[in-house]
Nucleic acid binder design. Structure first.
Lengths: 179, 179
DNA sequence: CGACCCATGTAATACGTTACATGATTTC
DNA sequence: GAAATCATGTAACGTATTACATGGGTCG
């Protein structure tokens, strides 16, 4: 599965929940998938154009002049299932914090402690945000999506908690490292 | 910090441990940083050329004909510290597994269980590999690098264990989801 | 002497972000 | 009627991967 098809997948999947404009699509991807997926306008609009050309989505005039609401066609639904079933391509990892810590002797223990603390803070903020999203999702009427959304929220929570406990371990061991 | 500077950082940092050829550099990045960093030949060679032009590294003839061993210059050492101190730029996330699970109703519960199980298997394999690397690192004579390498190994372990426990939770909740 | 590893380098291609240009509609 | 938001689209730029081309050295 090429990387371009990944954007097709995200767009088709989002449109399968409900038809919307390119602008709303970007908004929806940002707020709902933001923790594990990103798309920019520069990707979304050309993707909508090519998906329309290939008959996977069809635009209808929106409420505002010049705006188009896109919805999945029957072949688009098939294409979505096909892309979903294809193996996921992972982005090559590039973790700047771990890179800096691996060569931590260059920065020194104090600067490394600061890096770890910042990572811990970010994870704590993620946990707070996830608690908010979890409460919101639990308060909505259950749908076919609910159990799946809960699973992705849980993934974020496990990951953030792991970062916090790693940070605590790391801070402890950095205390024994001479500057 | 631009994304190009990220490759500069990785290359300078690796050369700060010991001088080596471009080929060995790729090998070293793959084996030591592979869990959280990647660089391809197509990045490494042009980067070595530009770093040489800027006086941050200097090539010396290697053992084999035509090969060059690169080492940090004094200004290269300064540049390394400068880049290390700059804030890390994170790659935008693109987690294909979580994307598929978020829209899991398209695939159905059984296929989602398979995805989660595969993620669990990968995490278990990572844990085995990390145990090997940890034992290897603990058996080597301690150096200035040892405590920092241990911290990055610990990060991998926390992350992999989080994936395993998330997968177990997810599998349990998928059992209650109708197909 | 064939296979494999070490070693370098580039060209084609794809991927993706950012910034810019443009304008309609809503809200205060 | 000014500001904010909704909405579309593209051009420029930078980043990165992959595949290919090339050849020396080593080991069985």
């Amino acid at each position: 599965m090429s990387r371009a098809a990944q954007t097709d997948l995200a767009v088709l999947a989002a449109l399968s929940v409900s038809p919307m404009t390119g602008y709303a699509l970007r908004e929806a991807i940002l707020t709902h998938l933001g923790a594990f997926w990103t798309e920019s306008f520069g990707q979304i609009y050309p993707t909508l154009t090519s998906l329309t050309r290939d008959g996977y989505v069809s635009p209808q005039p929106g409420e505002r002049a010049g705006s188009s609401v896109y919805s999945l066609t029957a072949t688009g639904q098939e294409r979505l299932i096909e892309l979903m079933a294809a193996p996921a391509t992972e982005v090559p990892p590039r973790n700047g914090v771990l890179l800096r810590l691996f060569f931590g002797n260059v920065l020194g223990a104090t600067a490394c402690r600061r890096l770890v603390l910042q990572a811990r803070d970010r994870a704590m903020a993620q946990l707070a945000e996830l608690a908010r999203v979890r409460a919101e999702t639990e308060n909505e009427p259950p749908s076919v999506h609910t159990p799946y959304w809960m699973i992705t929220i849980s993934a974020g929570e496990h990951s953030a908690r792991a970062t916090v406990s790693w940070a605590d371990d790391a801070l402890k061991s950095l205390d024994h490292v001479p500057e």
